[in-house]
């Protein structure tokens, strides 16, 4: 039986995988889209199809997340709109690079290799930060959500015209905003990711707006980069709409459950598992590349099991901690609204 142009097994797989990505998105505030492209690559989709479909998925997921943040007024639309030109140009450049590499026959290898490094790097950062957090739990200073880091204050002190006034009343150089947009756009277009793991810190540390607004605005940026990316790749007819639909059905539900879990689960309890999952995902992509180079299908199986297995494990950990927390600390009021992702 065929549904959405896919076999039932694949529909089930993509809905389940989308659900897991949605849980990560809702819980950690990151799309988890950087897991989707490798998964599609491992399943044998050509790089442009994997990246194009991932971009469309990013767009859909970002629409859902932005709607949630819009409800609590945490989106700086003016800043998001100003970043748009940089994002669009960056995505165009990134996608041109992918098609250029595809023409040379190296797209899968290069995209795969960059993924291995990226996932390993982010995984190490998360794991290290979780271990550090665990060792000096008592020494942490509470973070003021309205404060901005020192480096952002220093960057803001350089008045390079034209300066623009942001929604919170602060000023930033249009060059800084465009530079952040362009840099994130290149990464988005090249890898088929929303780029939230780069964009959110860049908005916070470089442009310098408060953390909560940085998260919401970053998601709005993901919406725009996803829209531009989906359109760019859509022009080449490489978006598999069935795959995108199945992933979105799962992720929209997962994101609600993931964000609801943040009301009950301490993120630091789970961060280390997320870091380890990213490291395993990096290993999975590396095995996928080895399978192609050495023509040994067994590595494809290992790769697939590692990617799906680690995602299932971390999702189960989040749900387990969530259920345990609800059971141990019964709430007297209604459950927290699920529109507050971090």
């Amino acid at each position: 039986m065929v549904l959405l142009g896919l076999s039932l097994e694949l529909v089930f797989l993509f809905v389940s995988f989308g659900f897991m990505v949605g849980v990560f998105f809702g819980f950690f505030g990151m799309g988890g889209s950087f897991l989707v492209t490798p998964a599609l690559l491992i399943l044998g989709y050509p790089a442009p199809v994997a990246i194009g479909s991932s971009m469309a998925f990013v767009f859909g997921t970002a629409v859902i997340a932005t709607l949630k943040h819009h409800d609590v007024g945490e989106v700086d639309y003016k800043l998001g709109a100003l970043m748009f030109v940089g994002i669009a140009l960056g995505i165009e450049a990134g996608s041109m690079l992918v098609f250029f590499l595809e023409a040379l026959g190296h797209a899968e290898v290069v995209v795969g290799a960059v993924y291995v490094l990226l996932l390993a790097g982010i995984g190490l950062l998360f794991t290290r930060s979780a271990i550090k957090q665990g060792s000096d739990d008592d020494g942490d200073e509470p973070v003021d959500d309205d404060d901005i880091p020192e480096i952002a204050k220093r960057i803001k002190s350089y008045n390079i015209p034209p300066m623009v006034t942001l929604t919170d009343g602060s000023k930033a150089s249009l060059w800084t905003i465009s530079g952040v947009g362009g840099g994130v756009g290149v990464v988005s277009g090249f890898l088929g990711v929303g780029g939230g793991f780069i964009r959110m810190p860049a908005i916070y540390y470089v442009i310098g707006i408060p953390l909560a607004a940085a998260v919401g605005t970053s998601l709005f940026g993901a919406l725009m980069s996803g829209a531009v990316g989906a359109f760019t790749y859509g022009l080449s007819g490489v978006i598999d709409f069935g795959v995108v639909t199945a992933l979105l059905i799962g992720s929209a539900l997962g994101a609600r459950i993931g964000s609801a879990s943040t009301a009950y689960v301490d993120e630091s309890d789970v961060t280390i598992y997320f870091g380890i999952m990213l490291l395993l995902a990096s290993l999975a992509v590396a095995f996928g590349e080895l399978a192609n180079w050495l023509e040994m299908p067994i590595f494809d199986t290992v790769s697939f099991v590692l990617l799906i297995g680690s995602s299932v494990f971390v999702t189960a950990v989040i749900l387990y901690y969530g259920i345990e927390a609800v059971r141990e600390q019964p709430r007297t009021t209604n459950p927290a609204p699920t529109g507050s992702e971090r």
Binding site: F59, G60, L235, F241
Partner: peptide
């Protein structure tokens, strides 16, 4: 690869947008 028109590509983006909004509202309900 299948080359399609800008209008068709735009329709894909609009379809994903509508799908996301429907899922947001549906799951919210």
């Amino acid at each position: 690869m299948l080359e399609i028109s800008a209008v068709q590509a735009l329709l894909i983006v609009i379809a994903v947008f509508i799908e996301a909004v429907v899922l947001y509202v549906g799951y919210g309900y």
